[in-house]
């Protein structure tokens, strides 16, 4: 299975969609938002808040891109080819999930490094660790949603759906514009999105607060929903592979 993960990571790193949406765009947007004074408030606070937002945005990009890869693999007959090797279907799925989990690391790292080195964000080592951990683990629901779409939909449709989902969740979740700037009705919706809960965990950690129970509960619920959805998509794809 390690060989499979390695192969998939090599393929990701050569994938323009992954590099652009998962790594380059979040860093560029982070630099623009923070250095053109588009982010509100104290300069350091803005750099810190937007760093978390953009790291979350990038992580979403690569998590969903990984899911689109499944649809591409299915269209290319790659999943069937894998079924003809000694690898078990469970190993293939696990390999793809691990690839997704590892694939978000460069996205998070790129933005956090930009924050630390370019925008001089300062945090305690404990806070850094908390942010990294929360940003990383928190991508699992999104990976599952992306995989579910990848299994359920075909090639282009899956890629478009994942991209649209990723952008909607990013915007609605307040990753681009803080939800404090939203009208009240939109803010009410945003607070139920998985993306807002996901980023909020790290926003709290970055400002030295304890992550809220509400965010944990909302994100966990979405984890359950998306996990079931991914399972449903996988079962359905199995019938046609």
């Amino acid at each position: 299975m390690l060989g499979y993960v390695r192969l998939e990571l090599v393929r990701s790193l050569r994938d323009g969609g992954y590099i652009i949406f998962g790594v380059v765009m979040p860093v560029v947007m982070y630099l623009l938002f923070t250095n053109l004074g588009l982010a509100q408030g104290d300069k350091h606070d803005a750099a810190l808040f937007t760093m978390v937002s953009m790291a979350a945005y990038g992580a979403l990009g690569s998590a969903f891109n990984n899911g689109s890869g499944i649809a591409e693999d299915r269209a290319a007959g790659w999943l069937r080819q894998l079924r003809l090797t000694p690898m078990t279907p469970a190993q293939v799925v696990a390999g793809k999930v691990v690839t997704g989990v590892l694939g978000v690391v460069p996205s998070i790292a790129a933005v956090l490094l930009t924050g630390a080195l370019v925008n001089h964000v300062t945090l305690t080592p404990g806070q850094w660790l908390a942010i990294i951990g929360l940003l990383w683990v928190g991508t699992i629901p999104f990976s599952l949603l992306g995989l579910g779409n990848g299994y359920r939909l075909t090639g282009q449709t899956a890629a478009m759906t994942n991209l649209a989902t990723m952008l909607s969740l990013s915007i609605l979740g307040g990753l681009w514009i803080p939800t404090t700037n939203f009208p009240a009705w939109l803010r009410a919706i945003a607070e139920w999105t998985p993306s807002n809960s996901y980023a909020a965990l790290s926003w709290h950690a970055a400002s030295g607060e304890v992550p809220g129970l509400r965010e944990v509960a909302v994100l966990s619920s979405w984890l359950l929903v998306f996990g079931l959805y991914a399972m449903y998509g996988y079962r359905r794809a199995g019938k046609t592979a």
Binding site: R11, G77, R80, Q81, L84, P86
Partner: peptide
């Protein structure tokens, strides 16, 4: 198949991008 006693070439597919 799991024991590696069989190899197969389906009618199409298996050629993936970027490797």
């Amino acid at each position: 198949v799991r024991r590696g006693r069989v190899g197969a070439m389906p009618q199409e597919g298996g050629i993936i991008a970027r490797v």
